[in-house]
């Protein structure tokens, strides 16, 4: 259990997918104007990344590796991720149409989120077991959601602050993001 806990802390905080690996920055800057949209996007991404990590591991272990098709991994994983997003969309729509009406807008944004593909490639390159791959995907996405909500809170505060005109909007957002990345560097070395 200790190695699983270290894996989770490493994936969520030490090697945070946004602030350490710089993946998924498009949605990080675009969907963090409000905390509620960041929460919705974060949770949807958590679900999709976890499910697609499981599927990508299975495809890698039972299709790509036995038949020596690793050169097809990028295309294959993109297809699996798109299928996972569609599966999530259909499932939410079937489970509860009102939930789909409220949350469905976030799902198409996840298909092209490079964090999803990045996590999949990282876990197959690390030769993880199935449970490790699932936990790695889950923890990476929890770290993604955490940073999204934190940054959304900061941006809501910034909207009320007296920012110089030249820095208003994306410039101050990028400065705050870089300060947040510096703060997360404090976690480095925790799991070594």
């Amino acid at each position: 259990m200790k190695e699983y806990a270290l894996l989770i802390i490493s994936a969520a905080l030490v090697n945070n997918v946004i602030l350490a690996r710089f993946l998924g920055l498009c949605s990080f800057m675009g969907v963090t104007t409000r905390i509620d949209t960041a929460v919705g996007m974060g949770m949807a991404t958590t679900f999709v990344i976890t499910v697609s990590s499981m599927a990508d591991w299975a495809v890698g272990a039972y299709l790509l590796e036995p038949y020596n098709l690793w050169y097809l991994r990028t295309v294959t994983f993109i297809m699996v991720i798109a299928a996972a997003v569609q599966f999530t969309e259909l499932t939410v729509k079937k489970v509860s149409p009102p939930l789909f009406q409220m949350l469905g807008i976030y799902l198409p944004l996840i298909t092209t989120n490079c964090a999803v593909l990045g996590v999949a490639i990282l876990l197959v390159e690390a030769r993880m077991t199935f449970i490790e791959a699932t936990l790695f995907g889950f923890a990476s996405s929890v770290g993604y959601s955490l940073v999204m909500v934190m940054f959304a809170g900061l941006r809501e505060r910034l909207a009320l602050a007296d920012i110089p005109r030249l820095f208003a909007g994306p410039p101050i957002g990028f400065i705050v993001a870089s300060l947040l990345a510096l703060a997360f560097m404090g976690f480095s070395g925790m799991t070594s």
Binding site: G40, V92, S96, M102, T134
Partner: peptide, 30 residues
């Protein structure tokens, strides 16, 4: 939005991971 997100995503994820951890500790097979 928070309640809807928890309902749609967190509950299925929690049961998925809980079942997986339980199966891994009992059976140990992928």
């Amino acid at each position: 939005v928070l309640r809807a997100s928890v309902t749609a995503y967190v509950i299925p994820l929690a049961t998925l991971l809980g079942a997986g951890m339980l199966a891994q500790s009992v059976a140990g097979s992928d």
